[in-house]
Design a protein around this nucleic acid. Structure first.
Lengths: 139, 139
DNA sequence: TTAATCATGAGTAGATTAATCGGGTATGCG
DNA sequence: CGCATACCCGATTAATCTACTCATGATTAA
């Protein structure tokens, strides 16, 4: 029931980008220092984040990465969905489930409810909330 | 972010046991038929469930397994905790985390909140709720 | 004593994952 | 142009994890 490192790292990376107020691109090497993730792994994690429109990149000298959305418009739920595909704790909930007992599966409904509760919580938190020094007022 | 098969199967098995009203032990072979899980894997999954006090077993002829608690007193949260160790979507939340950035880790708090939301939901559902033919009134 | 049934530690094949590698491509500067 | 900087990306690997099986032992009732 653990998130992949990709999801956790994606959150770290986007948060790191969001914490740079300037509008200049941040190099991968800098992100690596700030997050403790290797440069090459960062490159791999950034790919889907770009495709999803969270990050814009600039090539060449003085290039780097920069947020393409306001931190207040990026929820943790969006990030996790981008990296994991879907927020669900059982495969039988993803796309068209192949489980032959799914028609009236009692336990399936439980996993569905639990997944949904988690998703609602993740969707209620934005990067901007995390930047705010106040320690999560509603936690 | 998926549950292990062990957790899902444990829920199936306990629900299967709960659905037998009689007080006679149910053989592993029967459980296997009802749940679609191999006998040997069931035996493995039942071990922690016995240790946790959900199931009592009777050896020998006419032996089998039987619930040792009322279905209304077994929550899905308890089942998942028994099988997974803890309900958390990030290792950095389990026991004493070894992550050196955990002191003031912003993202850690997010995973904490999401895990907690899921746990609350799972703890609110009992086996008795699932037995009830009414389709989860509050879902 | 025999058949039924649960108990358990060890083992295995396959999948998944985190991370690396080795190259490629765009950009700016002199 | 030629070179340095920096991002881009498909393929691969090493390690871990997981679902599941095996072989054998222990208990009970008839």
């Amino acid at each position: 029931m653990k998130l992949s490192a990709r999801s956790r790292y994606a959150a770290r990376l986007l948060l790191s980008l969001a914490s740079h107020e300037s509008n200049t691109p941040i190099r991968t090497a800098i992100l690596s220092e700030e997050t403790g993730i290797t440069i090459q792994f960062i490159e791999q994690i950034i790919r889907p984040l770009k495709k999803a429109g969270f990050i814009k990149s600039v090539r060449g000298v003085a290039g780097g990465h920069i947020l393409d959305k306001a931190p207040s418009e990026i929820t943790l739920g969006q990030i996790v969905r981008t990296m994991e595909g879907a927020i669900s704790i059982s495969n039988c909930l993803d796309c068209d489930s192949q489980c032959d007992r799914s028609v009236d599966c009692k336990t399936k409904k439980v996993w569905e409810r639990a997944s949904r509760a988690m998703e609602v919580e993740l969707d209620s938190i934005t990067l901007a909330d995390l930047l705010d020094p106040q320690d999560s007022a509603e936690a």
